[in-house]
Computed example of a mutant assay.
Amino acid sequence: MTSFGDGNGSSYIGVGGDFANVLDHNDYLALVDSTDTAGVVLRAHLILEDFLNIWCSKTSGSEDLFKGPFIGFRSKLSIAQNLGLDSKIFEVLDRFNKIRNSYSHNRRYTLEQSRLDALILLVDDLHISENLLPCKDFSIYIGKTDTATGKNIERNYKYEDADLNKKIIIVFMVLVLKLLSWMQSEFERKGINYTIISDFLEK
Rank of each mutant, 00 (worst) to 15 (best):
D124F: 08
R100G: 03
D163T: 12
L122T: 06
N152H: 13
D161N: 13
T149S: 15
I168R: 11
L116R: 02
E91I: 13
Q113N: 13
T147R: 03
K158P: 12
I142W: 00
T145A: 14
I142L: 03
S114T: 03
V92F: 06
I153K: 00
H127S: 15
I153T: 10
I99R: 06
L133C: 03
T147L: 15
E91A: 12
R100Y: 06
E112F: 09
E154P: 02
H127W: 08
L126W: 03
I168P: 00
D94Q: 04
Y159H: 14
L126G: 08
L132A: 09
R100H: 06
Y141D: 02
I99S: 06
F96I: 07
E112V: 05
S114V: 00
L177D: 13
I99A: 01
R115N: 07
V171N: 11
E160L: 12
N106Q: 10
H105A: 02
T149V: 14
F138Y: 13
L93G: 04
I170C: 11
D124G: 08
R95H: 12
T110L: 14
R95G: 07
S114L: 01
I153S: 00
V174C: 14
N97Y: 04
A118V: 03
D161H: 13
K167G: 00
L93Q: 04
K136G: 07
Y159E: 05
F138M: 15
R95W: 12
D117E: 06
F138E: 13
V92E: 06
M173G: 05
D137W: 09
F96N: 07
S104C: 10
C135R: 05
D161K: 08
L93M: 10
K136H: 09
R115P: 04
D125Q: 02
I140T: 13
R95A: 09
M173E: 15
N101C: 03
E112N: 08
D161P: 12
R107Y: 05
V171W: 06
L111V: 01
T110F: 11
L122C: 08
L121G: 08
T149L: 10
R95D: 09
Y109R: 05
R108N: 15
N106L: 12
V171A: 15
I89N: 10
C135I: 07
S102V: 03
I99P: 01
E112M: 09
N131I: 13
N156F: 05
I153N: 02
H127M: 14
L121P: 05
S114I: 00
D94P: 14
H105S: 01
L132E: 14
E154T: 09
